[in-house]
Amino acid sequence: MVIPVHDVNPVRRTPWITYGLIAANVVVFLRMPAAAHTLAGNVTASQLCQLQAFVEHWGAVPRELILNRPPGLVPVGQVGIGPHGVGCLLGPRPYGKPPALSVLTAMFVHGSWLHLLGNMLFLWIFGNNIEDRMGRLRYLLFYLVCGYAAGYGFALTDPASTQPLVGASGAIAGVLGAYLVLYPRARVWSLVPFLFFIPLRLPAWLILGMWFVLQALYSTGNGVATGAEAVAYIAHVIGFIVGLLIALPLRPGTPPPPVPRRRSQAHHT
Results as ranks from 00 to 15, higher is better:
residue 133 R to N: 07
residue 217 L to G: 02
residue 201 R to K: 12
residue 241 I to Q: 06
residue 50 Q to I: 00
residue 88 C to Q: 14
residue 64 E to P: 08
residue 188 V to N: 01
residue 252 P to E: 06
residue 135 G to N: 10
residue 197 F to S: 11
residue 125 I to S: 11
residue 199 P to Q: 05
residue 149 A to Q: 03
residue 21 L to R: 05
residue 75 P to V: 08
residue 157 T to Y: 05
residue 229 E to K: 08
residue 101 L to Y: 06
residue 203 P to R: 05
residue 78 Q to G: 04
residue 104 L to P: 01
residue 26 V to A: 08
residue 208 L to N: 00
residue 63 R to A: 08
residue 159 P to H: 08
residue 244 L to A: 06
residue 266 A to W: 05
residue 93 R to F: 05
residue 139 Y to D: 03
residue 180 L to H: 03
residue 90 L to N: 09
residue 168 A to D: 12
residue 206 L to M: 10
residue 85 G to Q: 07
residue 180 L to T: 07
residue 235 A to C: 08
residue 119 N to R: 04
residue 259 V to D: 15
residue 200 L to I: 10
residue 146 C to Q: 00
residue 95 Y to L: 06
residue 38 T to M: 15
residue 7 D to R: 11
residue 162 T to V: 09
residue 252 P to H: 06
residue 232 A to I: 04
residue 179 Y to A: 07
residue 170 G to W: 09
residue 68 N to C: 05
residue 132 D to F: 02
residue 6 H to P: 02
residue 211 W to Q: 13
residue 88 C to E: 12
residue 17 I to E: 02
residue 132 D to N: 04
residue 30 L to R: 12
residue 253 G to Q: 06
residue 139 Y to I: 01
residue 25 N to E: 11
residue 245 L to V: 07
residue 204 A to D: 02
residue 133 R to Q: 12
residue 49 C to K: 00
residue 239 G to L: 06
residue 137 L to H: 12
residue 91 G to V: 15
residue 28 V to P: 05
residue 211 W to A: 14
residue 210 M to I: 01
residue 225 A to H: 13
residue 35 A to I: 10
residue 164 P to A: 14
residue 5 V to C: 03
residue 108 F to I: 09
residue 192 V to E: 02
residue 264 S to D: 12
residue 151 G to I: 12
residue 103 V to I: 13
residue 231 V to C: 09
residue 27 V to H: 12
residue 53 A to R: 13
residue 2 V to E: 02
residue 38 T to L: 15
residue 240 F to A: 06
residue 161 S to P: 03
residue 217 L to D: 00
residue 123 L to N: 06
residue 221 G to S: 11
residue 119 N to E: 03
residue 96 G to S: 14
residue 45 A to I: 07
residue 34 A to S: 14
